[in-house]
Design a protein around this nucleic acid. Structure first.
Length: 434
RNA sequence: CGGGGCGUGGCGCAGCCUGGUUAGCGCGCGUGUUUUGGGUACACGAGGCCGCCGGUUCGAAUCCGGCCGCCCCGACCA
């Protein structure tokens, strides 16, 4: 992408409404613009990050054996009357009427809809277990939206739903998702900790929320340092129930709690040198709720003996758009965002410090082509300082600085955003080095 | 939903209390010169229904009323 032709309106000053770091930086870096309270337009730079986060989430869902589908944002009120939640959900639910005066709603979640889909199509125990998910926009009419994209009314969420024949199988699905979640967050450069949670309006008897550590998080958290040493990547396999059980035990025996659920007695039992406190942001939540929806909505499948069985369900959410803010909260400095490589909108920014200089132009164009879409080329008629400042603000993992001094000898400067380290290298070596 | 605050060019703000020429400043934007590796300097210039509606007044950004929008604290939350 050429910056001179991009809708990436960076700001030198912070808009008055932005309080926390991620909101400020997302606005300043030109990632999003607010359209209404808690509703944002995602501009090109922000959208690329959102897409990366969705991609990683999707890859781990797929790896856990979940299947992707896509359900609508608008749902008929009728479905929610069946589960009893149309009345229960309250003012957070955005209710709409169409021209025929039929009652609709903008979905805050999809348990009813997926249960409806399953009862229409799944008839036999042989078809279970299944986990399906989608990544879709949701709307919850929060009383007080804030923190930019971290607490918007409209938000992008990955929600998965599991269907199992009995409780034991449902627990396996639950563990599967827990492993998928830990890997998902880890790949985004985040340290997440599963904490026992209330199940809230979704309902259920087993629930964990995933808290990532960030200095500006909303709640105080307490956890056992043992969490920091667990390796999620290779050691556990999604295809081994024994692995999943071992993983689950490991995750749930260590102490972890948010301040409102903090248990001082249990905390005392954690070895003093392993006690950790910090700030946290909730980025995911998983629930097992049995037959809370399948039963009232009449979802049954034929069991092996021909008799109907009511499947046990669970649901699993990841706040995709919230994660964009969360990653920034966890990774930024005075100058701007510091993207982890995995979610960065571009691998690198190419800074042409002297547009019109034959050597600079040539090297930049060559690099830009070689990066094949993975670089943002700052080809604006701007001073060097402006380009440096914007590159730092946007947080590209690498900056390739092309100035007339080095360019004459085919050399450029490579800067690593996270550490600030710079090295002078041959332009031809750049792609190999990063 | 309770409490507080704010709406003035794209952004940040002043002006309002004590109504009165063409509504200011910084940044940004355009043109030119200058500068040329960390938001350069100078000059000229473009850009504003002063959130909306109504009222008071000879006269309203300024006073009064209503409405709308946005932000902050709390309660709530992926």
């Amino acid at each position: 992408m050429r910056l001179s032709r991009s809708l990436i309106p960076t700001l030198k000053e912070t808009p008055a409404e932005a309080q926390i770091a991620s909101h400020r930086l997302m606005l300043r870096a030109g990632m999003v613009r607010q359209t209404a309270a808690g509703i944002y337009a995602w501009l090109p730079l922000g959208l690329r990050v959102l897409a990366n986060i969705a991609r990683i989430t999707r890859e781990e869902q797929d790896a856990a054996g979940a299947q992707e589908l896509l359900m609508p944002t608008i749902q008929p009120a009728e479905l929610w009357r069946e589960s009893g939640r149309y009345e229960d959900y309250g003012k957070e639910m955005l209710r709409i009427r169409d021209r025929h005066d039929r009652e609709l709603l903008y979905g805050p979640t999809n348990e009813e809809m997926i249960t409806d889909l399953f009862r229409q199509s799944v008839k036999s125990y042989r078809e279970l277990p299944q986990i399906v998910y989608h990544i879709q926009w949701k709307f919850r009419d929060e009383v007080r939206p804030r923190f930019g994209v971290m607490r918007g009314r409209e938000f992008l969420m990955k929600d998965a739903y599991s269907f199992d024949l009995d409780h034991e199988a449902a627990v396996v699905s639950y563990r599967r998702m827990m492993l998928a979640y830990m890997r998902t967050f880890q790949r985004m450069g985040l340290k997440a900790i599963p904490m026992l949670a209330e199940s809230g309006p979704i309902g259920g008897d087993l629930s964990h929320e995933f808290i990532i550590l960030a200095p500006t998080g909303e709640s105080q958290v307490f956890y056992d340092a043992a969490f920091e040493d667990i390796d999620y990547s290779g050691e556990f396999s999604q295809s081994s129930e024994a692995d999943l059980e071992r993983f689950f035990d490991l995750m749930t025996t260590c102490y972890g709690a948010t301040d409102d659920k903090h248990d001082a007695t249990a905390w005392e039992r954690v070895a003093p040198d392993r006690r950790r406190e910090g700030r946290g942001i909730e980025v995911g939540h998983i629930f097992h709720f049995g037959t809370k929806y399948s039963k009232p909505m009449g979802l049954t499948v034929a069991g092996a003996d021909g008799r109907p069985v009511i499947p046990e369900m669970g649901s699993y959410g990841v706040g995709v758009s919230r994660l964009v803010g969360a990653v920034i909260e966890a990774s930024h400095d005075e100058a701007g965002i510091i993207w982890p490589d995995s979610v960065a909108p571009f691998r690198a920014a190419i800074l042409n410090l002297k547009l019109g200089d034959a050597a600079c132009d040539h090297i930049c164009e060559q690099l830009y082509a070689d990066f094949a879409g993975q670089a943002l080329y700052d080809d604006r008629e701007e001073r060097a300082g402006v380009k440096f400042a914007d590159a730092d603000l946007m947080g590209h993992p690498w900056q390739v600085v092309v100035g007339p001094r080095g360019a004459a000898n085919g050399r450029v400067e490579l800067k690593r955003r996270a550490t600030g380290e710079r090295q002078e290298v041959l332009a031809a070596d750049v792609l190999r080095l990063i």
